[in-house]
Design a protein around this nucleic acid. Structure first.
Lengths: 200, 200
DNA sequence: GTCTATACACTGATAGAC
DNA sequence: GTCTATCAGTGTATAGAC
């Protein structure tokens, strides 16, 4: 019960939890919600089977925990750009740079994939729809950004909601495509995203 | 054994098979490969559980059958456009029209979704990677089309492979997004696709 | 061709020792 | 905090009657 032991325990706890969540993220992303089994996850951690239940009460809760982190992550990326100084169009260009950059990283891809899964294959999880609805509002900020950039003549005409959906769909589609098409890596630039919206 | 009975049997066979495959397509698309259970599928057909195994030897084979049809379907859509008369750019515009149109239909969406699943969540199926690799070659024809349209100055500069990947990714992303965002229906026009590639 | 009943493996979750 | 052993429920697939 000495201070040192408490500290050590806390450290062990952190490490194990981290191993579990990052293994779970990978397995969920690679096999889908139902295809991901606790066995696959624990095998990927190197830890024992039962330990997962020391940190999470159920498979479902692990998934929801990760989906929540996914939204937190993507929120932080978007907010960082929104809070910059500059015109709406400059912000869109910066966001495109950031996204093209993030596309190279496995982690963000995984987060986007499990969010996709939550919305499409996890109907069995009670309350998942509300869970996401609460968190998805954030993306509406991007609609406003597009509207502003339309007014300044940088973005093509059209329903801002549709354009932002297309922008996100393009990103999402590329994330998925890169999962099984390694040769695309490093070839995707922000130009692709910008061209989708740019007026002349 | 009279001719009439043979005919009737053939008819019954066709109907049941059709019920099974279309129900399976829907369930696979809505729940993911592993989330789709034979129980859900048979429940959706209205037929009995065991009957599925009269037509398919395994769940896996049903899925592969549908993935194969998915490629056949998308091939036919692309080929129809490619075989038209006109410039490369005209063909791209026509394809964009067709895709925006198909996006409204449930069936093509389902086919695209299960193809996506095959590539991301179905690693458990032995030989699935080769199965897809054999069929995916077809999309390279679109790369050539883009290259031609670049030469005539209609499409932006850049790696044709990347551009065609982005074009497909955009379509794929929109398909997925429309699964859980009904309000996008009828709002997506071919302009979205064309703007991704258009030069000035 | 269609159905119900059943075998068998796997999965999520729990119990209890260390 | 970590582990192994085990239970109950579900899923795929099969057997056999009609």
């Amino acid at each position: 019960m000495s201070p040192r032991n408490i500290e050590q325990n806390e450290q062990m706890r952190k490490e194990s939890l981290n191993k579990i969540t990052s293994a779970a993220l990978k397995i969920f992303a690679e096999y889908g919600y139902h295809g991901a089994t606790l066995k696959k996850i624990t095998l990927a951690t190197g830890l024992s089977y039962g330990l997962v239940y020391h940190y999470f009460p159920s498979k479902e809760k692990i998934f929801l925990y990760l989906v929540d982190r996914a939204f937190t992550y993507s929120k932080s990326v978007i907010n960082k750009v929104l809070n910059m100084t500059g015109t709406a169009w400059e912000k869109i260009m910066t966001l495109s740079d950031v996204l093209a950059d993030e596309l190279q990283k496995k982690e963000l891809s995984y987060y986007f994939i499990i969010t996709q899964q939550a919305m499409t294959q996890a109907k069995d999880i009670p309350g998942i729809i509300d869970f996401i609805a609460k968190r998805i509002d954030h993306y509406k900020k991007f609609d406003k950004l597009i509207l502003q950039a339309q007014k300044s003549g940088n973005v093509i005409d059209g329903d801002p909601g549709v354009l932002s959906a297309a922008y996100l769909a393009l990103f999402n589609g590329l994330v998925l495509m890169m999962q099984h098409q390694e040769d695309l890596k490093n070839k995707i630039t922000s130009e692709i995203f910008i061209n989708l919206l740019r007026k002349n």
